[in-house]
Design a protein around this nucleic acid. Structure first.
Length: 280
DNA sequence: AAATTACGCAACCGCCCATTA
DNA sequence: ATAATGGGCGGTTGCGTAATT
């Protein structure tokens, strides 16, 4: 048996708050406060809302000194630095940014900051550590002809000339699902390339191939990579530009922690102290 | 100009944890 | 000791609007 609902869902209004409801809640809060019980508050305040909904509306929008609008560079820096250290603990991060709510920061991260950060990482991928390599190396039971080493140093070395017939090992596709792909820096002689793996086209074709030094390859097992659009490449093979979905939280934390990126974006703060004096 | 797609944000959902009875 | 309860939190959804086709 599940938990009892916190309110009578059938008789409770949902969706956006009207200005009248806002005024009603604000007025009640200013006169009485929560009284230590959010669940009972809507009834007392004459609102047909769930107590949790009132709490959220108050904390995220109505309470005094809420800051709305653009985040400053300094705020971005703090968010990124903290994310690298503690992950998506938005309420703690919000505690370091006066006037910002956890919801606001979470939205900002998901819609802007993550893209900004990974966009930077993408442009500078040769400096990145390998992404997700441990997972695919563990799942790979064959010795790949293109991978010189089966351990995960920062960069793979190619053991044969990929300009002839380069084929990504099929097992490299295993960790990825749907239309996404993974990638890893590889070293090809003196050149640094990007190995693309994983993904599936709308026709169910597997995607494999590589992207070399910004030059598009469209031949045999090498597919066009577009900077601005995903879509179907040669032979119905799907190429997606959406790198973001390929990162787990740990990947992102690792990215931010990478000295190269931090140095470039100045994503460092010295010390984070919460209200209970916990240091991060 | 209309239709479609992408984006940003407010709000909801459900789980976890601390407190209370 | 433990079941019930409410608060808090992170993940996710869905809607309104902007941008693109």
């Amino acid at each position: 048996m599940g938990r009892a609902p916190c309110c009578d869902k059938a008789n409770v209004k949902k969706g956006p708050w009207s200005p009248e409801e806002d005024a009603q809640l604000k007025d009640y809060m200013e006169k009485h406060g929560t009284g230590g019980n959010w669940i009972a508050l809507p009834h007392k305040a004459g609102l047909k809302r769930c107590g949790k909904s009132c709490r959220l509306r108050w904390l995220n929008y109505l309470r005094p000194n809420i800051k709305h609008g653009e985040f400053t560079d300094e705020e971005d820096r703090i968010i990124c630095s903290l994310f690298a250290r503690i992950g998506s603990r938005w309420s703690i991060i919000a505690g370091q940014l006066p006037g910002r709510t956890d919801n606001d920061i979470k939205n900002h991260w998901n819609t802007k900051l993550k893209k900004k950060l990974l966009g930077f990482a993408h442009k500078n991928y040769f400096q990145l550590p390998l992404i997700n390599t441990s997972s695919f190396l563990q799942t790979s039971s064959i010795s790949s002809p293109i991978l010189h080493s089966q351990i995960s140093p920062p960069i793979f070395e190619l053991s044969e000339n990929p300009s002839s017939s380069f084929t990504a090992p099929s097992l490299l596709e295993a960790p990825m699902h749907g239309h996404n792909y993974g990638y890893a820096p590889v070293k090809e002689g003196n050149h640094n390339n990007l190995l693309i793996f994983g993904g599936e086209t709308s026709h169910g074709k597997k995607m494999e191939g590589y992207y070399s030094n910004g030059v598009d390859h469209v031949e045999n097992h090498k597919f066009l990579i577009s900077e601005s659009h995903g879509g179907e490449g040669e032979n119905g093979n799907f190429i997606s530009e959406n790198l973001l979905d390929n990162y787990s939280m740990e990947d992102i934390k690792q990215l931010i922690s990478t000295n190269h990126i931090c140095n470039n974006l100045n994503f460092f703060v010295d010390e984070i102290k919460t209200e209970d004096n916990t240091l991060y």
